[in-house]
Design a protein around this nucleic acid. Sequence first.
DNA 1: ACAGGGGTTGAAATCGCTTTCATGAAAATA
DNA 2: TATTTTCATGAAAGCGATTTCAACCCCTGT
Lengths: 336, 336
Amino acid sequence: MEKQTVTIYDVAREAAVSMATVSRVVNGNPNVKPATRKKVLAVIERLDYRPNAVARGLASKRSTTVGVIIPDVTNIYFASLARGIDDIAMMYKYNIILTNSDDAGEQEVNVLNTLMAKQVDGVIFMGNHIDDKLRAEFKRAKAPVVLAGTVDPEGDTPSVNIDYAAAVEEAVTNLIKRGHEKIALALGPLSQSINAEYRLTGYKRALSKAKIAYDDKLVYEAGYSYDAGTKLQPVIADSGATAVFVGDDEMAAGIINASMESGIDVPNDLEVITSNDTIVTQITRPAITSITQPLYDIGAVAMRMLTKLMNDKELDEKTVTLPYGIVRRASTKDAD
Amino acid sequence: MEKQTVTIYDVAREAAVSMATVSRVVNGNPNVKPATRKKVLAVIERLDYRPNAVARGLASKRSTTVGVIIPDVTNIYFASLARGIDDIAMMYKYNIILTNSDDAGEQEVNVLNTLMAKQVDGVIFMGNHIDDKLRAEFKRAKAPVVLAGTVDPEGDTPSVNIDYAAAVEEAVTNLIKRGHEKIALALGPLSQSINAEYRLTGYKRALSKAKIAYDDKLVYEAGYSYDAGTKLQPVIADSGATAVFVGDDEMAAGIINASMESGIDVPNDLEVITSNDTIVTQITRPAITSITQPLYDIGAVAMRMLTKLMNDKELDEKTVTLPYGIVRRASTKDAD
DNA sequence: ACAGGGGTTGAAATCGCTTTCATGAAAATA
DNA sequence: TATTTTCATGAAAGCGATTTCAACCCCTGT
C-alpha cells in the first residue's frame, strides 16, 4: 500500500497544460494568464499535489535549507540562539538541519561536510572555539557561513556577538568599585578564544585600570556545567577571593549552591556575577546578577545576515556587535 | 568565483570507468574489483569529490533525513529528548530537520507538511497534545511517524513514553502516606491529554485508593513556565493545600521560590514534587523531589523505532513504556 | 577445447522539477 | 490592414545521482 505520489506531470496532464506552466503557477511566476492559473490551481487542489522539494532542489540548486551546528541542544544558551535562528528561518521559508557537535573540532568539520553534501544554502555555526582547520573549511565551503554567539578572533567569517571583553570589564569594574580586590574568574577552557582572548582580556583590563595586580592563581578553568561549579567552589573558597565572575550560568549556580551549603554567604562573603542571563539566573537563591545578552536576537540577526549572503547581497557589516547590559540580582550587593 | 562542483561524471571520466561503477564504490557495493575500487577511490580523493545528497535523494527516493517537530527548543525537557534523537540519528547516518511548533495545532500540521515536501524519510513528533486533525495528517503522511514523550490516547501512532498516570499516582500516594490530605495538582492546560487523561487520572487514583475525596478546586491549570509558577503560588497557598504535585519543573521552581519568599517553608509548610527531573530540580533550594524519566532514552528509543519503520521492519511493540523512578530531594520530607 | 557460470562493468532510463528558448497568439503601433 | 511587440505557453535539456539489464570476461568442469 505504498502511497502514490502525484507529480507535476500528473497535474500538467489533468490540467491540459505543460509542466512548465504548472511550475510557473506553483512558483508564483506572473507570466501566466489568470484563467490558466485558476485552472491549474484547481487541479492541484483536486489531486492534492505537493511539490517535491528534493527534485526542486536538484533542478534549482537551492535547497531552502540551512545547516545549524550547535554544541549541544540541551544547553539553554545555545538553544536560545537556535530558537531565534529557526524563527527567522521559518519567516524566510527556510528549514533548519540541526546537528550537535559537542564542541569537538573533528565532529564539527564532519557535520559541516555532511551539511554541505546535503546542499544546504548556508550554515550558522555556534561553538566555543574556531581553530584553523575549521576556519579553512568555512572558506572552502561553497555556501556562506555565519557565526552566532561565537567569536573568531581572525574576523574572517561574518558573526553576531556582544562585546564580551567590554561586558566582563564592566562587570568586574563594578565589583572593584564595591571594594573587592581578590576577584576570581571562573571560565571554561582557556584553549577557547572566547575565554582566553575576550573574557580574560576584559578581566585584566578592569584590574589594570584599577591598578590591581593580575594574579593568574585566581583564574580557573572548568567545564560549562552545574557540577563543574560545585566542584570548583571549594577551590575558589580557598583562594580567599571575595567575588567571582563566572563564564556560564549553570556553573555559577553550582558555585552559589555549594557556597551557601558550606556556609559561605552569597553575596555577603562572596559576590557572584555570571554571563548569560538564562532562566537559571532567576531560579537560584540568591538569584544571580548577570550580563544580559539578547540571545534570541543574536540568533535572529545571524539568520538575517545569512539570508542576505545566500541571495548574494552585501552585508552592511561583517561583524555585528549587539548591545549587552548588566542586570543586578541578589548575588551582588547594591552598588549604592 | 562560483566554486566548481565535481560530479560523479567527472570522477567517472578521470578514472576511465562508468558512473555506475563510481556509484558502486561510493555506496560500498561489493561487486567491484578491488583494483578498480582503488583506482576510483584515488580519483575521488584527488578531485575531492563529495556526492550530492539531493541528487542521491531524488534518484533513490531516500533523503536520509528525518523531521523532528518540537514545541520549543529552549524547553529543556524536549531539548533533552531531541538530543537523544539526534545522537541515534547520527549513528544511523540520518540528519535532523528540526522545527519549532509552539505546540500550536495549525503550526504543527504546517510544519509536518513542509517536512513531507522535503521528503524526509520519517518524523519524530513531540508535543503536548494530539488532536484529530494532526492524527489524520499522521495517517496520511507517506513517511512513518513516531511520538517521543508525547501521548496519543488513541494509540494509533507508535510512541515512547513513561507511564505518566502510574508515576503521578505513586508520587501522590507518597504524599498521602506522609499524612497529606489536601494535595494540589498544578498542571498545564487540561485541554491536553497528557494532563487531563494521564496525570489527572493518576492523581485521582491515588486519592480514591486512600479514600480521599477528589476536589477539583485543588487542580490548577497554568503554563509550563517559571513565571506561571510564581503566579500560581499564592493561589495554591490560599487553597490550604499542604503539598503539591507539579507537571513541569520550571513551574515547580517558580512555586518553590515564591513560597519561600512569602514565608511558606518548603517542605515543612508545603511539600513539592515535580515531573521531569531536569537540571532545574537540582538548582533550586530546596532541590525538588521529582519523577525521574529517561529523557535521553525516550528520544533515542523513538529514533531507533523510526529507523526500523523506515526500513519496513516490524516493531516489536508499538507503544513503548520506559521505566520511571522517583528521586527524593529536599522539597519533600523524609518518608521514614 | 567448449559450454556454463559467476563476477565486473557500462549504457541508459529514471527520479520530479526548473529553466531556457522558440513559437504562436494577441495586442499595440503605424 | 500590415507590422512590430508583448505575452503565454510548451518542448526539451538539464540537475547529479541510482538502478536495472545486458554484455563481457575469465575461470571451471568435463
